[in-house]
């Protein structure tokens, strides 16, 4: 039995190894599937649901669904992008995301996803939850207001830093990132060099004294949409052919 599989994403043929997810296969083939909690090199988590695609007509998260021969995957469709817009809007209203005063603004993946999906204002009612800021650590700030519970810090600290500084406590809308019970960041092994800090897609985990270092206009997503950083601009593509 061949260890290669072949399927289509929006009609484009994609090759993959049998053990790969649809997301990994798409990334290797240069097909962008919007995502927030998935990062290459970490085990799939499947919590943000932004990578939801339709696999043979059924909704499924691309980061957790294995690639198989003969699958028909829909990705960049109006229906799916509408659903993604709703998901991202819910992330905005479910936390306290004040972009205008956030150090991560311009480099934030949640914000960039809002831009990419063309969200001008989240229309769900704002929850304005009561959340804490843990500024106890001399070099690191943990702002729960901005956390989207993607577990990227949890997984990076555990699997790449070998530390397991973070984990989740509580359930449902009370779920949040925590250090040990009752502990604050200063009581943990967290260090300013931890890769877990780079893993945060939003401004929840930040190195202190580094905010606003990059001027407006030069930030990661000021001019280029998320997902288009390494991709081929479709307009340039047409020019190349002519």
């Amino acid at each position: 039995m061949s260890d290669r599989v072949s399927f289509t994403i929006d009609g484009t043929r994609v090759e993959a190894f049998r053990s790969q997810s649809i997301m990994d296969a798409a990334m290797e083939s240069g097909v962008y599937i919007p995502r927030l909690c998935h990062v290459p090199g970490l085990d799939p988590w499947g919590s943000c649901r932004v990578c939801t695609v339709k696999v043979n007509g059924r909704f499924s998260t691309a980061c957790t669904q294995p690639a198989m021969t003969g699958l028909t995957v829909e990705n960049d469709t109006e229906e799916l992008n509408d659903l993604r817009r709703d998901l991202v809007e819910m992330l905005f209203v479910g936390g306290n995301h004040f972009c205008m005063s956030c150090e991560k603004s311009g480099n934030c993946e949640l914000q960039a996803m809002g831009y990419r999906l063309g969200i001008t204002a989240p229309l769900h009612p704002y929850l304005h939850p009561d959340r804490d800021v843990d500024a106890s650590h001399p070099d690191i700030m943990l702002d729960h207001n901005r956390c989207i519970l993607c577990a990227r810090c949890v997984r990076t600290s555990r699997d790449l830093d070998g530390k397991q500084v973070f984990d989740f406590v509580n359930r449902g809308s009370d779920r949040r990132i925590a250090i040990d019970p009752g502990a604050r960041l200063k009581d943990s092994d967290a260090d300013v060099t931890d890769r877990a800090l780079d893993a945060c897609p939003v401004g929840a985990l930040l190195r202190k004294r580094e905010g606003f270092r990059v001027p407006v206009g030069e930030r990661e997503y000021d001019h280029v949409a998320i997902g288009e950083e390494d991709g081929v601009d479709p307009v340039s593509d047409l020019w190349d052919e002519s």
Partner: peptide
């Protein structure tokens, strides 16, 4: 409609 660089939340 807004071109990409003009849609900003900050």
């Amino acid at each position: 409609t807004l071109p990409y660089p003009l849609l900003k939340y900050d």
